[in-house]
């Protein structure tokens, strides 16, 4: 079985993210980290490696900054890393990136599962993986909270998904795309031996040509969505009204009345 973790680098979740004078997003000197959801995907891939002898690869479609995420996954124990990028992908949208990802997966040839986090925290979207699944013609098992079983012989997979109403048990056939939620596991730290390997690793970069897609299909000109502007959310209006609570019961009564007046209760 060959399991591919799809990831990208994002600013640390504790980072203060801002837009600079040129309209670019900045996060001060906060480090880039692996997209937090993808850490769970990498952990799950490693468990498949340990339990089922799966081969593991991590892939990103993006610029050099994605090496951070790739190397983190390698330091955790993922065996191989590949980055897909060339200048034609600069400014591409999710469709262009999904095409590049799907092409790279096809090139690998033997992939049974792509596993990734439920979304990328920077763009707040899972569009790339869903569209790539479509280009590959693979089923998607999203928001997976548990891989119940995989039968490597038949490729049957059963998972529990976290949906609005509760947990849904679903079965499907590999190859498939799996997106995971935090509940699925507790990701391990990178190991020191992994760090030694990752630090000296030269990550191969597959260009668009190598992944077999025409420039016109992926480049910015082919994008169907464009970002016009990024900006901070408007500040919440008004100052906080502190209700004195020397008498807690009284404070509670006053607050209850105010909330009822505001019609939020």
């Amino acid at each position: 079985m060959h399991v591919v973790v799809f990831t990208k680098s994002t600013p640390d979740t504790a980072a203060k993210v801002e837009v600079d004078a040129n309209g670019n997003v900045t996060w001060g000197d906060s480090p880039l980290v692996v997209n937090p959801w993808d850490e769970y995907a990498a952990e799950e891939a490693l468990q498949l490696k340990e339990k089922q002898g799966a081969n593991t690869t991590v892939i990103a479609v993006g610029p050099e900054m994605d090496n951070d995420a790739l190397k983190h996954c390698v330091a955790m124990g993922i065996q191989e890393a590949v980055r897909v990028w060339d200048d034609a992908l600069e400014g591409s949208d999710s469709l262009g990136q999904a095409k590049a990802l799907a092409a790279a997966i096809k090139k690998m040839g033997d992939v049974d599962m792509i596993i990734t986090g439920k979304e990328a925290v920077d763009v707040n979207s899972d569009a790339v993986i869903l569209q790539a699944a479509r280009f590959l013609g693979w089923p998607v098992l999203s928001f997976v909270a548990k891989i119940v079983e995989i039968d490597p012989a038949t490729g049957a997979i059963k998972v529990e998904r976290l949906v609005e109403e509760g947990r849904e048990t679903v079965s499907a056939k590999l190859p498939a795309v799996v997106t995971v939620v935090k509940e699925i596991n507790e990701p391990r730290y990178p190991s020191f031996i992994g760090i030694r390997k990752a630090a000296k690793l030269k990550i191969p970069v597959w260009s668009r040509a190598e992944s077999g897609r025409a420039r016109s299909e992926v480049e910015a000109g082919a994008a169907k969505t464009k970002v016009l502007e990024k900006f901070p959310p408007p500040p919440r209006e008004g100052e906080v009204e502190i209700i004195p609570s020397d008498d807690v019961e009284e404070a509670a009564r006053i607050l209850a009345e105010k909330l009822i007046e505001e019609k939020v209760v």
């Binding site: 480090p31 190397k71 983190h72 020191f192 760090i195 000296k200």
Partner: peptide, 15 residues
């Protein structure tokens, strides 16, 4: 610091 230093630093910090 080397990449390796930074990765060790981050891992120990996280722990």
């Amino acid at each position: 610091l080397s990449e390796e230093h930074l990765m060790v630093q981050r891992m120990v910090r996280e722990f």
